[in-house]
Every structure is written in C-alpha cells, then in structure tokens.
Nucleic acid binder design. Structure first.
Length: 349
DNA sequence: AAGACGGGGAT
DNA sequence: ATCCCAGTCTT
C-alpha cells in the first residue's frame, strides 16, 4: 500500500505489455510522429485524433514539409480539431527546427520545452517516448491516477499539485522504458482509472498499491475546482449565395477561432425585417431570403445561440469572399459551429 | 493565479 | 446539462 511509488513500475509495465490500444503513432514512434500526435492529443481524446493523424502524415510527412507548408494547408488539415493555436505553433516550431536544429527535434527536454506549443507535459512525452529520456509526462490522466493512488484530496486543478506530482515522478523515473511507463500511466487513466467517478478498480493492476481504493475513495477522487459559467452570445448567421458561390468571411487573427473562415453573422437575434434593414445599409442587394432552423454551439467559455437566414444576393459585397463549394471543401477551414447551417447546402458541398 | 482557447463523446 | 479529455499561453 505505497500510493505513488516505484513499486508500481513492474505491475504497470506488465499490464501494459499484456495488451494496449493499437494507436497509429505507436506503430512507428519517430520523433516527428510523436510530436504531432502529442500536440493533437492536448485536451483531445484519442478517438478524435485517430481521424486526423494519418491524413496529416500523408500531407506533411516530415518537419521540412510542415515548415514550408502554406497556412491554408495546415489549417485545413486541422479543421474541426479545435484549439487552433496548436497548429499555428506547430508550423512556427517547424520553422525554428529547420533554422536552428537541422530540421530535427532535439533530444533534450529543455530545448523541446522552449519550442512554441510544447509545455512541460509535451516535452516530457516527446523526450521519453521518442528518445527514451527518463523524464515524467504528467497529464490529466496521470494527475487523476496519482490523486487516487495517494488518496489525496488536493484539487488537481491546483498548479502546485501538478508541479509536485511531476517532481515526485522525476525523483525515481526509471532509465529503462520511461516512454512506456508514461504511456502506461496514461493508458491506465484512459481505460481503467476513469474520470467522472467511474474507476474500474476490479481490473486495475495497481489496486494493491492504491490508498484511494483502500479507503473506498477512488470514485470520489480527484477533487477539482468548480468551473465558471459560460457567457451566451446571440448571433444572426447568414448563409449567403451569389449564383453558385458561397459568401465567407475570415475571422480576426487573434482570439476565438483565430484566422478561420466563417459564415458572416450579425450581432444579436435579428428579425427578417431587422436583417433586411441592416444588410441594405451595407449595400447588400437581396434577391431572396429564407429563415433557417436556429442552432447553438457550445465552446468552453462561450455559447453561441444562432438564428439564421439563407440569402441570395445580386452582388458580392465586401468584406465577403465568394467561393465555389469545391473550393470551400478543399481550401477553406471552417469551425464546426456552423455545421448546422452548412448542412442546408450539404448536397452541393 | 486565472482566463482564453474547440470540439465531441460519455454520463 | 455536465464533465473532461495524452495542455499551453497570456495576462
């Protein structure tokens, strides 16, 4: 009954070796593939990343290809995956790697940490998995496993808890198979030591070491700080056509969904009359206008409540960009928030 | 230390 | 409707 201690290494690796998930980036763990997978996996479930990883590798097979890629290319490859600063940072880091590291990821924790988009977790993951360097990789899974092993009621949202957990692992991180140990801890968190009060302790290889299990607290750990309420934004979304073309707008280069393309919209929930009036003031020449079914989209900190209109125009007013459906599909990255409205013309896309 | 930053699948 | 995910960066 040791909690988080080196005693967990043999049973955990034994369990991991007995069978683990077959993931594309595990098959061939080159530094580049590990890096891309780890960035994609930040705050993102394995099953979501599965749908993107091979497509990315086919289009951008190495660091130099990424460094030389156009923004529209890597944004489109990331479309729908979220947290779009991740892909901008990937590109920035690739340029740095080509300029300063000969197009290779450095086999050094601190150098990795200095690259854009690579923090404590990701530096540890790349160093240990791709290079066999004995450093911890403490993510949300590991924090949950640690809190339960130790029967620790410190909120894992506390930055000090993460730092302390990382240091405790670092103190005894084995030189043998550090990457597999880190992956096994995360695998345990993702498949056995589940969140939301649902751990499968009966199947856990560390049950005999787990203080949380011993004290019957596994399902009530870990503690987390309460979340803040989301603010609600009302929008009027416009699905604009001019002939066969669709009117798009590019979002600002900073903030929510930075740089992505979107359906144009107006602030607030506007009636058809209010919308006609607002658009006439902008010089839009409306030929036809139909109401669309309202939709909503939930982000982490914001909720968009959207009503919508399908509009046919006789002109192509600024600042819209009018694109054909095939060009939209191939080149323009749009967030998922507009899916309900785009489905209206789905058969053409 | 706290907030911004996506999207989706499980409960 | 809530939780939370193989987190990082900015303020």
């Amino acid at each position: 009954m040791n909690g988080l201690s080196p005693a967990l290494v043999p049973p955990l690796l034994g369990w991991y070796d007995q069978g683990h998930r077959d993931l594309p980036w595990r098959t061939l763990p080159t530094p580049y593939r590990v890096w891309i997978s780890e960035i994609m996996l930040q705050q993102t479930r394995v099953e979501a990343v599965r749908r993107y990883f091979d497509g990315w590798m086919d289009a951008l097979p190495d660091i130099r290809a990424l460094a030389e890629a156009e923004e529209s290319v890597y944004m489109k490859l990331w479309e729908g995956l979220g947290y779009y600063n991740r892909v901008r940072n990937l590109h920035r880091a690739a340029v740095v790697l080509c300029q300063e590291y000969g197009g290779q990821l450095p086999a050094d924790y601190d150098k990795l940490l200095s690259l854009p988009g690579i923090g404590e977790y990701t530096a540890g993951a790349i160093a240990s998995i791709a290079y066999g360097i004995p450093v911890p990789a403490v993510d949300g899974n590991v924090l949950r496993v640690a809190a339960r092993l130790d029967n620790d009621f410190t909120p894992i949202t506390d930055a000090r808890y993460k730092k302390q957990t990382r240091e405790r692992f670092a103190a005894w991180m084995p030189a043998d198979r550090p990457g597999d140990l880190n992956q096994a801890l995360m695998e345990l968190g993702a498949t056995i030591c589940l969140p939301n009060g649902a751990p499968r302790c009966g199947d856990c290889p560390l049950q005999h070491l787990c203080l949380g299990y011993h004290h019957k607290n596994a399902s009530s750990l870990p503690l987390r700080a309460a979340k803040k309420a989301r603010r609600i934004e009302n929008r009027t979304v416009l699905l604009v056509r001019c002939g066969t073309l669709v009117g798009l707008r590019q979002r600002p280069s900073a903030g929510l969904l930075a740089g992505l393309w979107e359906l144009p919209s107006l602030d607030g929930h506007l009636s058809p009359e209010e919308t006609r009036s607002a658009l006439a003031g902008l010089g839009w020449q409306l030929r036809r206008m139909l109401s669309l079914r309202p939709a909503r989209h939930i982000f982490t900190h914001v909720e968009w409540h959207m009503n919508g209109y399908y509009i046919e125009l006789d002109n192509q007013p600024e600042p819209l960009t009018f694109v054909s459906p095939p060009a939209l599909r191939a080149t323009y990255a749009l967030p998922s928030a507009f899916r309900a409205f785009l489905n209206v013309i789905e058969e053409e896309l």
